[in-house]
């Protein structure tokens, strides 16, 4: 093999793989609860056949738990579908509120596993930007990954999409020990290529522990 793998394509594939792995894990967890709940219903039925009274409260709790898991799985699959469809149109008018909330939800398992709470402060009105939705999601995912891997005690990250003079920006606050040097190190070739493609710039505010992703 002599061909060089395109770093942007490889980064996109890696992002998609990681999200898929996380989603399938979530679905498996939900299936595990459903599996045990169905098994417990079977246990109760067998006990009832042997003459034991059916506990209506237990049945009610089980039904509630199963419905909750079905709703949870449905939401997970809907998000997976939304991510898959972000490849449909490479360049489109996008509401950053919707995009940020989707990627926050998709990254939740990863961030929570690292002990982080990521919140999205979404304005009441849409924040529109002409962008490539897939690579913007990929970039936000990488910024969150950078955030949860920073040394320090900060465990809460806030993402805020905002309108700006140039159009729009997304602020990430709550970074521990943020330095311009660290942000420069974060900007590897795939990240630089994403910024170039999206026509965006990253800036660090060391004092406020904030990174701003501005649309130019």
């Amino acid at each position: 093999m002599t061909g060089r793998i395109d770093p942007l394509g490889a980064a996109g594939l890696s992002f998609y793989s990681k999200v898929s792995a996380s989603i399938s894990h979530e679905i498996k967890n939900s299936l595990a609860v459903l599996n045990e709940s169905a098994g417990f219903l079977e246990d109760l039925t067998l006990m009832a056949k042997k003459g034991r009274d059916l506990d209506i409260n237990r049945l009610e709790t089980l039904a509630g738990s199963m419905l909750k898991q079905v709703k949870r799985s449905d939401a997970i699959v809907k998000n997976m579908n939304r991510l898959a469809h972000s490849l449909d149109d490479p360049w489109t008018q996008t509401d950053l509120n919707v995009l940020v909330e989707l990627i926050r939800t998709l990254s939740e398992r990863t961030t929570v596993t690292r002990g982080f709470k990521v919140t999205a402060a979404l304005p009441d009105s849409p924040v529109m930007a002409e962008t490539n939705p897939f690579f913007l999601k990929n970039l936000i995912w990488l910024i969150l990954d950078f955030a949860v891997n920073r040394p320090g005690n900060a465990k809460a990250i806030e993402i805020r999409p905002e309108k700006s003079e140039s159009g729009a920006r997304i602020s990430f606050t709550g970074f521990a020990n943020l330095t311009q040097v660290a942000l420069n190190d974060f900007q590897t070739e795939p990240v630089r290529r994403m910024l170039e493609l999206l026509n965006c710039r990253l800036q660090a505010d060391e004092n406020q522990g904030m990174i701003q992703l501005s649309f130019l």
Partner: peptide, 16 residues
Amino acid sequence: DEQDFLDVLSERLKTR
């Protein structure tokens, strides 16, 4: 960390 999973699995093991 899945509370629902803990609840149901523990109930089922208790009945055994």
